[in-house]
């Protein structure tokens, strides 16, 4: 291990990089070995871990999933019942959505309770709100993908809600559906939004979020 590290370090000069990542101090109030209450500082990290799990299980689901009205349902059914560990992976991806929502909410609650959104962390709070929207959006778009009754009709209701927005609503709803009905184009759109757009934005906002956490440190209770 140390020989490998030395080899890489001599060539890439890794040490300063790693120092800057690993050597920051953990304040006492956020250290679970010193205060039990420090556990609420873990919620953000747990949320992040769950998002990683979602990405990993999601990639495996994509190996079989086909985003077309004829095949989507059959492919999910196939994943669930025919493939090795398919049902397991899908189960985790599904429970993961709930877990992500719960952990992000708890994290947000902790930030509010400790007043951590105050100066200088206002911008990080705002980044957090966008993260919340992105997570909610992922839940909504993922719901359609199995193309079962629930998926189809829940999405119809959801898009109709968008349509009720004055002025822009009709246009937005048509853009989401790719027409006036939930159909083949809607499924492809939701799929691409779910696996490309939202994850890309999640990565960007998470990077900003973590960058700010590192620059500003964890807030200290007064």
């Amino acid at each position: 291990m140390s020989r490998v590290y030395k080899f890489l370090d001599e060539r890439l000069n890794l040490t300063p990089l790693i120092r800057s990542i690993a050597d920051h101090e953990v304040p006492e109030h956020a250290d679970p070995s010193k205060h039990v209450s420090a556990f609420m500082y873990c919620f953000g990290g747990i949320a992040f871990f769950i998002l990683l799990l979602q990405a990993l299980t999601g990639v495996f689901l994509m190996l079989y999933y086909v985003p077309s009205p004829e095949d989507a349902y059959a492919s999910v059914n196939y994943i669930e019942n025919e493939t090795a560990f398919g049902g397991f992976i899908r189960g985790i991806h599904r429970v993961g959505t709930t877990a992500a929502v719960v952990m992000v909410s708890l994290h947000m609650l902790r930030v509010v309770l400790t007043g951590s959104y105050r100066k200088p962390r206002e911008l990080n709070w705002i980044a957090g709100i966008f993260l919340l929207l992105l997570v909610a959006g992922s839940c909504f778009t993922g719901y359609l993908l199995p193309w079962d009754q629930k998926a189809y009709w829940a999405t119809t209701v959801g898009v109709n809600m968008v349509a009720s927005i004055p002025l822009a609503g009709g246009f937005l709803a048509d853009a989401l559906r790719g027409g006036s009905e939930v159909g083949a184009l809607t499924l492809v759109r939701f799929f691409v939004i779910h696996v490309m757009f939202l994850p890309a934005f999640l990565v960007i906002f998470l990077a900003a979020h973590f960058f700010m956490v590192r620059r500003q440190g964890i807030s200290r209770p007064l």
């Binding site: 049902g87 709930t98 009754q149 629930k150 189809y152 009709w153």
Partner: peptide, 23 residues
Amino acid sequence: WQAPLEEMADPGDVTYVPRPEWY
């Protein structure tokens, strides 16, 4: 909580009352 999979979507069946996820 097994991940649910209902019957395949039937755009003609307007009697279906969808419920969103709990959150």
